[in-house]
Design a protein around this nucleic acid. Structure first.
Lengths: 249, 249
DNA sequence: CCTAAAACATGACTTTCGTCATGTTTTTAT
DNA sequence: ATAAAAACATGACGAAAGTCATGTTTTAGG
């Protein structure tokens, strides 16, 4: 887990496409839907995959675009967002290396993208045409079962999130978010658990359905209580246990 | 759609189990995951299905129970809920005839039920052992693809709901709920569109993440504005268009 | 290193919504 | 038909969170 190096190097805002390099093959071991394939099937799949790099201000795809490809995060973090007419937006999910873009479940029934996919920094994305991917699934019942499990899990996550949004206060929702991020993606350090991606108060606000000011105020309280420290570029969770307790109490 | 007759007859609180009757076969035509099967495969599946009836105060299963069966609603309405320690609860989804219980996506990866399934009145449920169902899916790649599409759709719905909970006010969320129910399940009548299941203010509150009092106040406003009429046993949507507009404006 | 832009911080005020209390209407069950 | 229970209704009040304004700190990029 927590593969992102977050290089903080220059941004390239023009995206470039190429054949995946050798390291792609080892990534596939970690992608739930592909690791199950036989060596033979992987050899068939590999030439169908192409790799594209995107920078912070690019869009991988936008809400409403037709769904032509199936995507996998190779490197970096991607956010999946929905927007309203009046400009407010909500972030549905952060995708880490190895994740499929299923925010975009549309890939599975041929509709349009229900949300926008945007890099959080420099990212590298593998993609494959819908058809090639579906053909592969039909030939591999085990891989199809993997996809079913993956979607089932994503649905459970989504419903857990619904419950939190429906029943908890903003401070509890933020505590739950930080605890979840810490446990899933955090990097253990001497002072605490560092989050591996740049994450502003605005980003957090979009994930918990609150305003930036509200998140700033809550983070100030959490900081005073020694639960967290730092800002966007270096956010550290000092006390995961207490955050969890706060979230569900 | 909107198959429920809502008999308002005496409740039987002891649930009884039996072989599915002839009408089950025609229901299967409408179940997305089964309609795709060949006549031959259906004959194999039918004996695996058993039918159970439940009353209003029964539980079909509870949050935390091990997942042994895969369920389909045959008749009536089932709600899928999650609860917190302090007794508040949130309703994730209402399931209508033909729906799978995937609130319970756990069926797909062998965990425990992430939510409780409760009848809204008298219901009839078909069920099948996990294993029998999985074996069937492995033999039928097309059926597996159907399940993938179904789950993809459910995930999209869940994410749309997340967006509404995160960004909209309670009155907008309620308008969206009523509009959705009206469009999906409503029965056209002279005065407007009647909802086919008993639905209290409390039920609505649990679906939109608000309190009963808040929903009562909003419904009073909607009533004065001639958008809706009636109470739990007979809820009618008088102006679907205006409700929709209100939800997204 | 230095500047402009972005992110963070805090206060004052308003809106939205929850809580508690009390009373009426509808539904259920005998 | 009728009593009890559940659902609906409304007001008063307070807590939570949004909005707007203003100032400080951090970060990006030359």
């Amino acid at each position: 887990m927590a593969l992102e190096r977050d290089p903080l190097s220059k941004r390239l805002n023009t995206s470039s496409s190429k054949r995946p390099d050798v390291s792609t093959d080892s990534l596939l071991d970690h992608v739930p839907l592909l690791s199950i394939l036989s060596a033979q099937d992987r050899q068939r799949i590999l030439p169908e995959l192409s790799e594209t790099r995107y920078g912070k201000d690019d869009f991988i795809f936008r809400e409403g675009d037709p769904t032509e490809y199936f995507h996998i995060v190779k490197e970096g973090t991607v956010k999946c967002v929905k927007s309203t007419a009046n400009g407010r937006e909500c972030t549905l999910k952060m995708l880490m290396p190895g994740d499929l873009f299923c925010c975009d479940a549309a890939a599975f029934d041929g509709g349009c993208h229900p949300g926008t996919a945007q890099p959080m920094g420099n990212v590298s994305i593998l993609r494959m045409h819908r058809k090639a991917y579906f053909d592969m699934l039909k030939r591999n019942p085990d891989a199809a079962m993997e996809v079913i499990k993956y979607l089932g899990n994503r649905l459970n996550e989504a419903q857990e999130k619904t419950k939190i949004l429906a029943l908890d206060r903003a401070d509890q929702r933020l505590a739950a978010l930080l605890a979840d991020f810490g446990a899933r993606n955090g990097i253990k350090e001497t002072q605490g658990i560092r989050l591996p991606m740049r994450l502003t108060r605005q980003d957090m606000a979009n994930m918990i359905g609150a305003t930036t000011e509200t998140v700033i105020r809550i983070m100030s309280r959490f900081k005073r209580a020694r639960l967290v420290s730092g800002t966007a570029n270096r956010l550290v969770i000092l006390n995961l246990q207490q955050l969890k307790a706060f979230a569900s109490g």
